[in-house]
Simulated scan of single mutants.
Amino acid sequence: MLIAYNEERQLFLPYQYTREDLQRYRRFMKFYCPQCQHPVHLKIGQYNIPHFAHQSKNNCAQLFAEGESQLHLQGKLQLFEWLKKIGHTVMLEPYLKELSQRPDLLVTSDRRQVAIEFQCSTITHEKWLSRTLGYKKNAIQVLWLFQTSLKNSSLQGIQKLNISPILQKVIAYTAQDQPYLITYDAKTARFIYWTNLLPVYGHTFIGKVQEMTTNMQHFPFYEPVVITIEEFRLYWQLYKRYCRQFAYQRLLHNHKGVQDAFLRSCYELGFTLTAMPDYVGIPVKASEAIPMFSLEWQTILHYFCQGIQQLPHELNKSEIRFFLSEQNMDITDQAVKAIQNYGAIFAKNYQNHYIPDICGHVYAHLFAIATIY
């Protein structure tokens, strides 16, 4: 922990003093945990950030974790100083008794409170949900800010991203309904934006990575702008590459033969895995609700449509739900929307006999049009 009370009940922040001063204070001053009131020990290392630790284990340690990494301590201090510098009222490690929780930072503005959780270590879904709901029940907005992973700490530009399930839970949306994620790199004191996120499959996304120094950042955080059609063409190239890789891998590692719904559909429709039609494998909004690669479910959808003599854009909600049920997929509103979104794109191509600039049309549906179908 970065704070403690001294014998006079005054808040003591070690980072504000030199190591020589801290060594002198440690000899004659006693410190106490702000949460449990038990004595704590001031730790002053040669390289580590000065901090406090309980002198003996007690129940407090379950609420106020011991053994924080130096990166976590460093990041909290950087964010604390940054928020103060830009004029915000912010508390470091405040104990919220009514929640029995201690956010890393608590920002108060116009009677509105925002708890900032800077997360460096792994956290379970259960713990994340419990803490998030705790803040929500007490009308406190929570902002989860994860330490930037090593893989994505130095690369910028449009690229493939691996976003873990827990990080996917904190994806935010702009006013134009574009998904993005902000992480923080305490090593470089920079915010890393993963913007205009396009789901590929599972944990894989395509996104544009940009960095911003604390000197340039605002709070609440700046929202990213929509990518251009030229930038989306790079997305399109990457996405189509993954489509080809998916088809090749399915053919190479197929063990089900004709029982494989995707390969069976390709055979019945006369699709060639090495040259799939442009109108399958299309990224659409809400596609993350369908646990299949777009090339797979859209091909199977066309085979399903052939069986009932319909086209994808002609399907009603009842027929869409029946399709999802046949494929043992969860019948959710988002999954239905994904298929409707695909139908809307397919209809345009069908009416124009598969217009050559399908990339531009997909861009319009994904980025330029905010309507959710």
Rank of each mutant, 00 (worst) to 15 (best):
M1Y: 00
L2A: 03
N6K: 08
E8T: 12
L11M: 12
L11R: 14
L11N: 04
L13M: 10
Y15D: 01
Q16I: 08
L22I: 07
Q23T: 14
Y25L: 10
R27P: 02
M29F: 11
C33T: 02
Q35V: 11
C36Y: 11
P39H: 04
G45F: 02
Y47P: 01
H51D: 06
K57D: 13
C60Y: 06
Q62E: 14
Q62P: 02
L63S: 09
L63N: 07
E66V: 12
E66S: 15
E66Y: 06
E66H: 09
Q70W: 01
L73Q: 08
Q74W: 13
L77T: 02
K85M: 06
I86K: 04
G87P: 08
V90E: 00
P94S: 05
Y95M: 04
Y95N: 08
K97C: 08
E98A: 10
L99E: 01
Q101E: 03
D104Y: 06
S109C: 05
D110P: 00
V114R: 00
F118K: 05
S121V: 03
T124Y: 06
E126H: 15
W128T: 10
R131N: 12
L133K: 14
Y135C: 03
A139S: 15
V142E: 01
L150P: 02
S154G: 08
G157M: 03
I158V: 05
Q159D: 07
L161G: 06
V170P: 10
V170W: 07
I171K: 03
T183L: 05
D185F: 04
D185A: 02
K187E: 14
A189Y: 02
R190H: 08
R190E: 13
I192R: 15
W194R: 13
W194L: 09
L197S: 09
L198Q: 11
L198T: 12
P199M: 13
Y201V: 06
H203K: 13
T204V: 12
Q210M: 13
N215R: 11
H218W: 09
V225A: 14
V226P: 06
T228F: 04
I229E: 14
F232A: 13
F232R: 09
L238M: 15
L238E: 09
Y248L: 10
D260N: 13
C266K: 07
Y267P: 00
Y267F: 11
L273F: 07
P277A: 05
P277L: 10
D278Y: 04
G281Y: 15
G281R: 08
S287M: 15
E288Q: 15
E288S: 14
P291Y: 10
M292T: 05
E296T: 03
E296I: 11
C305K: 05
Q309A: 12
Q309S: 12
Q310D: 01
L311H: 07
P312G: 02
E314F: 09
I320L: 01
R321D: 07
I331K: 09
D333S: 11
D333T: 09
V336R: 00
K337S: 02
N341E: 15
Y342E: 10
Y342L: 08
A347V: 10
Y350E: 10
I358Y: 09
Y363H: 04
A364M: 11
A368D: 10
A368H: 09
